[in-house]
Amino acid sequence: MNGKVITVTSGKGGVGKTTVTANIATALAMLGKKVVAIDADIGLRNLDVVMGLENRIVYDLVDVIEGRCRLRQAMIKDKRQPDLYLIPAAQTRDKMAVSPSDMILVCDELRQEMDYIIIDSPAGIERGFRNAVAPSDEVVIVTNPEVSAVRDADRIIGLLEAEEKGPGRLIINRLKPEMVARGDMLSIDDVLDILAVELIGVIPEDESILISSNRGTPVAMSGLNGSSASQAFRNVAQRLQGETVPFVDLTPKTGLLNRLNNWFSKS
């Protein structure tokens, strides 16, 4: 087998990298793929709690790299899916405990057995970012429709191009369609206009993401009351597989005055 390594990154913190990693890993596993998610945020372990696997950690990524266990021993199996695993980050070490070549070695071994290796990157553009990106075949950049997040995404796209890992594909997370409709949020087109990269997903702002994190069950799996974010994540997984999936229409139903406004501002 020759698995594909996908790195999820953003530059800015708090935009949803960990949420995206947990959900696309889960959604790909739900499509019957063999998937391992790696938490590369050394010292700030989080993917385990978002995936609900925190109680089963024995070994972590740094244990593997420093030879205290075999790779298999650090892979926690998610029992809710046929083939989904997590390699947690070390909690009491820092990013310097891992090097880009360590990550390449670990991923090369995982490629033998897995279809997908999804890496959750830490915030920033330093060592942790380079660790996460070094083994990647494809990069998913997460941003929010917000000035600071888009600016950082632009910087990341530049760095990816410099490392010949680019350009990557974009996920716009936490979009609020009502705010876009009233002109108080950057629209999908605004962001694409500025960043000029391919879009692979739009995830709406959705309470069910927090509820799912509370429970440790990624929303792609729980599908809370037909949550729109759940569907959006499953669409991303299909696009990663190379399928063409239309983007869900997120525009809110408009009233007469809105339609009039739109009509006049277009002309």
Partner: peptide, 19 residues
Amino acid sequence: EKSGATAKQRLQMVLIHDR
């Protein structure tokens, strides 16, 4: 002016300098 449009203009300006 709507804040979304302001955001876009500010981003375009700042990215010109960043890039």
